[in-house]
Amino acid sequence: MTTFPGSARTEMVMGLPVSVDIRTALPAREMVPLLDNAFAWLRWVADTFSPAREDSQISRLNRGLTLRQVPELVEVLHRCDELSEATGGYFETRMDGVVDPSGYIKGWALERLSRALVNAGAGDHRISAGGDIRVRGSAAPGKRWRIGVRDPRRDIVRKVVFAHDLGIATSGGSPVVNPRTGKVEEGLGSVTVLGPDLGVADAYATAIYAMGPILARRYAADLAAAGPYQTMIVTRDGQEVTTPGFAAYSGADARLAG
């Protein structure tokens, strides 16, 4: 099979391995600094938004200290408030007086990086970090990306998704708190959301997981009916429930995807 002469790199960022795989044919003199800048951006995001880092802007905000003028901080907090309203409060970054945008920031960072790679001429790429994956362009000439959606609890591939342009976010590998009860939600196995913006998909996956089994199905159905975000819910006993549009990205219907 014909392949692209691109380049890939994996580094530890935000406490997990992050992979940037660029398939666009670019000269080495452009590819190396492009990858350097990609990981520099991700490290800046971790330094700025991680609540676990004492001098991050989020930590300083939570301690009432002076903040730097960071436009991205305002953007992220505003978007998180919008997503909280859109999910009826089930996506919530402000609990017990503490701000923590972790349910959005990883997807947002990868989405911003993906757009930057397109602007730099690297339109064929796959970026992955944990359960968040962003693909654009082609994996090989004329070929969509083939992405295995893994079950974070059982470490098996639940679905194989094909697309040229898609964000994929899975929640359930780490504890998710139900903002209504203040307790860790344990009613579902995992939630995967597909859509055009990985940050938004990340927030939706977190919120739907936090809702528990009954509300999750209802909200996922309403979300799919209203727009481009499709959901797969895995129950605690391993059953899969998908919204109708999910099938367009897998199996025989994959030719309709992306």
Results as ranks from 00 to 15, higher is better:
230 Q>M: 09
140 A>V: 00
182 G>W: 15
250 S>F: 13
50 S>F: 07
212 G>P: 08
54 E>A: 08
84 S>P: 04
48 T>R: 08
22 I>F: 10
126 R>S: 11
18 V>I: 12
187 G>T: 08
229 Y>D: 01
178 N>V: 03
115 R>Q: 08
66 T>L: 09
232 M>V: 09
144 R>W: 00
91 F>V: 00
29 R>W: 12
95 M>L: 14
2 T>I: 12
65 L>G: 00
199 G>P: 07
87 T>H: 09
52 A>L: 14
117 L>S: 00
239 Q>A: 10
31 M>F: 13
213 P>E: 10
68 R>V: 03
167 G>W: 11
171 S>E: 14
257 A>M: 04
246 F>I: 08
105 I>G: 01
240 E>L: 15
193 V>T: 10
91 F>M: 08
226 A>G: 04
34 L>C: 01
21 D>W: 14
227 G>W: 14
34 L>M: 07
176 V>P: 05
209 Y>T: 00
183 K>A: 15
113 L>V: 06
181 T>N: 04
238 G>S: 14
59 S>L: 05
235 T>N: 07
156 I>Y: 07
91 F>T: 03
180 R>P: 00
114 S>W: 15
80 C>W: 15
179 P>V: 10
49 F>A: 01
90 Y>K: 02
159 K>P: 02
43 R>K: 13
12 M>A: 02
121 G>V: 11
55 D>M: 05
257 A>Y: 06
208 I>R: 10
225 A>C: 05
112 R>I: 01
174 S>F: 11
166 L>D: 00
225 A>N: 09
7 S>M: 15
121 G>K: 14
136 R>G: 01
100 D>K: 04
73 L>S: 03
164 H>M: 07
215 L>F: 08
99 V>T: 11
255 R>D: 12
106 K>P: 02
5 P>C: 00
77 L>F: 14
184 V>Y: 11
57 Q>R: 05
87 T>N: 06
14 M>Y: 04
123 G>W: 12
90 Y>A: 04
140 A>C: 03
88 G>H: 03
1 M>N: 04
71 P>L: 14
85 E>K: 13
233 I>L: 14
240 E>I: 14
66 T>P: 01
149 V>P: 02
121 G>E: 13
179 P>C: 09
194 L>V: 11
177 V>S: 02
251 G>Y: 15
204 Y>V: 03
211 M>H: 07
48 T>G: 05
29 R>Y: 12
21 D>C: 08
240 E>R: 11
247 A>K: 12
133 I>C: 09
129 A>G: 03
88 G>E: 10
192 T>V: 08
211 M>I: 09
237 D>Y: 09
201 A>N: 06
19 S>D: 06
88 G>L: 09
122 A>C: 02
55 D>A: 02
130 G>Q: 11
5 P>N: 15
130 G>V: 09
149 V>M: 13
183 K>P: 02
74 V>Y: 10
70 V>P: 01
104 Y>N: 04
41 W>Y: 15
155 D>Y: 10
207 A>P: 02
93 T>P: 05
158 R>F: 01
69 Q>N: 14
5 P>K: 11
126 R>Y: 04
153 R>M: 08
178 N>L: 06
225 A>Q: 15
22 I>G: 02
11 E>W: 01
206 T>F: 03
